[in-house]
């Protein structure tokens, strides 16, 4: 599942690339593409892919403390602590994206 989430991210990379292409092409092309992404059949696929993306992010943060133990003291930090810190960072970064990239609420 986690691996599939990684592949889904590449798929979204191509979708965002097309979003930029349609933005360059003009308002009608851009709006048509965004509307297509929100039409029910595509929307349901979007919801499944979004769930896979979130799962990929959560498992990635879980892996950090296990695959590369973080060591400030004699013993490495427990992976659950590292995971908790990463989730807090994730929330902070997401809030920064909301305000800096999308102009806030």
């Amino acid at each position: 599942m986690r691996e599939l989430g990684g592949v889904v991210s590449a798929l979204y990379g191509l979708i965002f690339l097309n979003l930029l292409r349609t933005l360059r092409a003009g308002e009608s092309a851009y709006t048509a593409f965004v509307d297509t992404m929100r039409t029910p059949p595509v929307l349901y696929v979007n919801l499944v892919l979004f769930a896979l993306l979130v799962w990929h992010a959560v498992t990635w943060f879980m892996l950090i403390g296990k695959a590369q133990p973080i060591q400030f003291t004699e013993r490495p930090l427990p992976w659950k602590s590292v995971f908790g810190v990463n989730v807090l960072l994730w929330i902070g970064v997401s809030a920064a994206v909301v305000y800096l990239v999308f102009g806030g609420i």
Binding site: L19, V34, L49, F50, L53, A57, F61, V93
Partner: peptide, 18 residues
């Protein structure tokens, strides 16, 4: 790319398409 994807993708997809 894994770090970028994990930190930035969910909020972006959520705001644009969900």
């Amino acid at each position: 790319g894994g770090f970028i994807t994990a930190f930035l993708f969910p909020i972006t997809v959520f705001l644009l398409f969900v």
